[in-house]
Nucleic acid binder design. Structure first.
Length: 583
RNA sequence: GGGGUCGUAGUUCAGCUGGUUAGAACGCCGGCCUGUCACGCCGGAGGUCGCGAGUUCGAGUCUCGUCGGCCCCGCCA
């Protein structure tokens, strides 16, 4: 029978008791973490969101100790008692210098035996953790992560509000747009056959708010994309969405850098500002990625010029087909075995390369490619190699070589180890405005269709749109894209032209974006902004490897919620009301 | 859509080239215990080997399918 707690008021959290509280009468409420029954002496570890404290039940209260003996893990109880210094301290516990000698105990709720222990690290599969997420979330690590998430959001709000930004809501029930990810759709009951869409981002509406003169907007907002999941991708995720009028890129960089500095103070990190800037071209050529992990110091080299003087026929054919020769030096890796080199070759192939050339210098050159000594010397000099090093070369289409070597660079174990609390931010700028999509058979926006081209590339828009660079930028941290944005188009005619280059017919353009194009004609200020991936940011702050660890109720990689069992079927009646029929 | 990997007691796992009654630890239940904190000691219960076919005298083990977890490619303006 659950006890009545109406006349009890909690005085402290379990986790906050310290020697200074000694002698005080306290009332605690919490979950039984552990029960140690010594016969005529019972210890109970009581847990709440702030931590654990030991409760002791002594034999001079016979009825009380009998109650305490019946407590089991995860029972919810209230305890009234006196804080005392402990006879034996426990230095592994923040409250380990004190205990609470119980005078009264109230059982509020019993618990079934939990399917896994509420303890760090979790001794249960993610599957089981998701099914009983309410238990998983009781773990101190999860309580800490969710609290950190709250504190980060609060910092963002306080910082941006202090800089004159308004937090403004935009609708979740909005309009499907043809560009970008797959939409989640909401059928309209009132207008059968018509659908709202959940926003992939509030992009057009935040730009509309700029046209409305709000000048500085932000929103910590859920976004929805019906695409496949990853460790850092959920179908619904949270963005810090930001937009500003009358700015250029540098103005925004400053605001975001200061925002990051403020947020990282939460974990005691002092960031060095400003963040380095890399052009897209530069980062692709040096690191083979548009989100380089700058904790890794390895850089790729272009060896095409040297390669063209080499005798190998293999290379001649590739160069004739327009290929390039890219190289990556791995210091100290000259001792790798043939099997390990083969594994690297397999990895390169899995990223599309046709082969991997290796050269090592250990008592002379050894290589998978037959070359003259002087040729090895010139390659080695270009790579900056020394005795005992390994050089990896890929001769292929430029993008293929960069990507494959970039992957080897990114995952090179000697470089990855032990630098979790090293935070290397960078801005990647000057992305291509558009890229060719084989699937769609047309050019598609690399960022989104509202991104402004670089002024100096504007002339290329008609004839060579694929070469136009954009006023777009990504914020990258330790190999993770934590944000992306751009200076937007605020001119109706330019915006129409972009849609047309992207292959949208005037009719489609009008149907999907007509309202926005019209809004642009009523005095749109120059503006730009960014969206930061809030889940990813909190994940990094928390030192986690997956955003599922910082989202209270995440979905599995197959987009199921194991707690609620969604998605689920609905009744025929619900379908009929919406005018829907299943095929 | 594709590739990889995993699924055995409540949990985490072991289970060899197919062969008696499928094991361990933790947890759970009962008993004892006045300073434990991974409490200890004694005793006990607990299994649709994810599911379904197939091969075989015989399947946890082999094959196929299917469901589910995780990682990756594609996809993610």
């Amino acid at each position: 029978m659950a006890a009545d707690r109406s006349n009890w008021k909690r005085t402290h959290y379990c986790g906050e008791l310290r020697p200074a509280h000694s002698g005080q009468d306290v009332v605690l409420m919490g979950w039984v973490h552990k029960n140690r029954d010594m016969g005529n002496l019972v210890f109970v570890d009581l847990r709440d969101r702030e931590g654990l404290v030991q409760i002791v039940f002594r034999s001079d209260k016979a009825a009380l100790i009998e109650e305490a003996k019946r407590l089991r893990t995860e029972f919810v109880v209230g305890v009234r008692g006196t804080v005392r210094p402990r006879e034996a301290k426990n230095k592994d516990l923040a409250t380990g210098e004190v205990e609470v000698e119980a005078k009264e105990l109230k059982l509020f709720a019993a618990s079934k035996i939990p399917p896994f222990a509420v303890a760090d690290p979790p001794q249960a599969s993610e599957e089981l953790r998701f099914k009983h997420r309410y238990l998983d979330l009781r773990r101190p690590a999860m309580q800490r992560n969710i609290r950190l998430r709250h504190e980060a959001a609060l910092r963002v709000r306080n910082f941006l509000s202090g800089k004159g930004f308004y937090e403004i809501e935009t609708p979740f029930m909005t309009k499907s747009t043809p560009e970008g990810a797959r939409d989640y759709l909401i059928p309209s009951r009132v207008y059968k056959g018509r659908f709202y869409a959940l926003p992939q981002s509030p992009q057009i509406l935040k730009q509309t708010l700029m046209i409305s003169g709000f000048d500085r907007y932000f929103q910590i907002v859920r976004c929805f994309r019906d695409e496949d999941l990853r460790a850092d991708r959920q179908p619904e995720f949270t963005q810090i969405d930001i937009e500003m009028s009358f700015i250029d890129r540098e103005d925004l960089f400053v605001v975001i850098e200061e925002l990051m500095a403020s947020v990282f103070e939460l974990i005691g990190e002092k960031l060095t500002l400003p963040f380095p800037k890399l052009s897209y071209k530069e980062t692709m050529e040096k690191y083979g990625s548009d989100k380089p992990d700058l904790r890794i110091h390895l850089e790729m080299k272009d060896l095409t010029a040297i390669g063209k003087d080499l005798s190998a026929d293999l290379l001649k054919n590739i160069f004739a087909a327009g290929g390039e020769l890219k190289g990556l030096l791995l210091p100290g890796a000259g001792s790798l075995s043939r099997g390990q080199l083969d594994k690297l070759g397999e990895k390169a192939k899995s990223f599309g390369a046709k082969g991997l050339i290796w050269i090592k210098k250990q008592d002379g050159f050894k290589s998978s490619l037959r070359l003259a000594e002087s040729e090895f010397e010139s390659i080695w000099a270009a790579l900056g190699g020394g005795e005992g090093d390994l050089g990896l070369l890929i001769a292929d289409k430029k993008e293929t070589g960069l990507k494959a070597l970039g992957e080897i660079r990114r995952t090179w174990p000697q470089e990855k180890a032990g630098n979790k609390r090293d935070f290397k931010f960078a801005w990647v700028t000057d992305f291509p405005l558009m890229e060719w999509s084989d699937e769609e058979g047309r050019l598609v926006s690399m960022h989104h269709p509202f991104t402004s081209p670089l002024d100096e590339d504007m002339g290329l828009l008609e004839k060579e749109p694929a070469r136009v660079r954009a006023k777009a930028y990504d914020l990258v941290l330790n190999g993770i894209e934590v944000g992306g944005g751009s200076i937007r188009i605020h001119d109706t005619e330019l915006q129409r032209k972009i849609f047309s280059v992207l292959g949208l017919t005037p009719k489609e353009t009008e149907e999907k974006f007509g309202f926005f194009l019209e809004a642009l004609t009523y005095g749109a200020p120059p503006h730009g902004g960014i969206a930061l991936g809030f889940d990813r940011l909190v994940m990094i702050l928390a030192g986690e490897e997956s955003i599922r660890e910082v989202i209270p109720f995440p979905k599995t990689t197959s987009a199921l919620c194991l707690l609620t069992n969604s998605p689920s079927e609905v009744s025929d009646r619900q379908l009929a009301e919406l005018g829907l029929k299943l095929k």
